[in-house]
């Protein structure tokens, strides 16, 4: 492990200050991903700023009926929070579908957004090529073993996927990420938080290097209560998604009033299927409609040597997740 200095921040301002003035500084939340990557030699921060003492661990109701998840709230506390469970069931489901109980007890909500890809070629520094680790070095995955890689929004520079389950639900819920930097606070819509790889796959989010996540705000919504998170994986627990779907749907008199669909395991970011959502508005809430939406959601999919199965798997998963989310709504 490369040497680093360590300090504790007691307030958001001091954390931001330390981040802005530090040399290659990183914030330390639960450490479940960062410390692992430091051991691998992938992350080499010179300074670690521990933010676990910041007063950001609360989960509070917002005046408009939404919910604010503090950046250092633990994943397990979030998943078991009564308001999360009742108002945003698929958020709780998505968190519980990820990692292990031990990891969820440590991992923070803010940190979950900043997880880095599990692409083999990124994680193991023995590979010369990885445009994330060494911009310009190439992508070993494109011609390598790419069963777990992306099928949507990939580029010639990177086909990695975002590993989070929670973020797939957050994308479907139109969450907003509240951040603070040296110039104050700003709000980033979730769809703009993570980026597609393009030709700069090393830049994974729109969070600036000197910004701290304060909270993730969930708006009140008519569909969130009727939601489902479906994860398909190689074993029943403790495996990253081959494909996952977060679906929320509001049905009135048999027709779809509002709907949200996001997919995990398919792209460099949690993938919102917006065209498919639009297609469904006003349509009858039945399998035929869901199939048509699923087809549209994957129409631009591009597959690689080992991951063509993800296209039909994603389609089936969309249909299944929408069916479960719609449930018994009239």
């Amino acid at each position: 492990m490369y040497p680093f200095s360590f300090q504790r921040a007691d307030a958001a301002d001091t954390a931001v200050d330390a981040l802005a003035h530090g040399k290659n500084a990183k914030l330390l939340g639960g450490g479940t991903n960062l410390v692992d990557l430091m051991k691998q030699g992938v992350e080499r921060p010179s300074e670690l700023i521990d933010i676990n003492r910041l007063p950001l661990a609360e989960i509070t109701e917002l005046p408009d009926g939404g919910l604010r998840l503090g950046a250092t709230a633990r994943n397990s506390d979030t998943a078991s929070h009564p308001l999360v469970r009742t108002r945003y069931p698929m958020l709780a489901q998505s968190i519980l579908a990820g990692a292990s109980a031990q990891l969820r007890n440590m991992a923070t909500d803010g940190g979950n957004l900043l997880q880095r890809t599990r692409c083999y070629y990124f994680y193991d520094t023995a590979y010369e090529q990885c445009n994330k680790r060494k911009p310009g070095s190439g992508c070993a995955a494109i011609n390598g073993y790419n069963r777990v890689h992306g099928i949507l929004g990939t580029s010639a520079e990177c086909i990695a996927t975002h590993p989070s389950d929670m973020c797939v639900a957050l994308a479907a819920l139109d969450a907003v990420v509240r951040v603070r930097g040296p110039r104050g606070e700003r709000r980033i819509p979730f769809s703009e938080f993570h980026r597609l790889p393009g030709n700069t796959p090393q830049i994974e989010t729109s969070l600036r290097a000197d910004e701290l996540i304060l909270s993730i705000d969930l708006p009140k919504s008519p569909y969130a209560e009727h939601s489902h998170y479906l994860k398909v994986r190689d074993r029943a627990s403790y495996a990253f998604a081959l494909v996952s779907v977060a679906a929320a749907i509001e049905v009135e008199h048999g027709s779809i009033r509002s709907v949200r669909i996001a997919m995990g395991g398919v792209a460099h970011k949690p993938w919102r299927a917006e065209a498919a959502e639009k297609l469904l508005i006003g349509k009858p809430a039945n399998e035929g409609s869901y199939r048509a939406a699923a087809e549209l959601a994957l129409v631009n999919a591009k597959t690689y040597e080992h991951n063509a199965f993800k296209v039909p798997m994603a389609k089936q998963s969309i249909v299944r997740a929408l069916t479960i989310a719609a449930g018994e709504q009239a």
């Binding site: 083999y120 590979y127 070993a140 390598g144 073993y145």
Partner: peptide, 8 residues
């Protein structure tokens, strides 16, 4: 990995 022979 079929290029480098490394277990991925």
């Amino acid at each position: 990995d079929k290029v480098t022979g490394r277990p991925v």
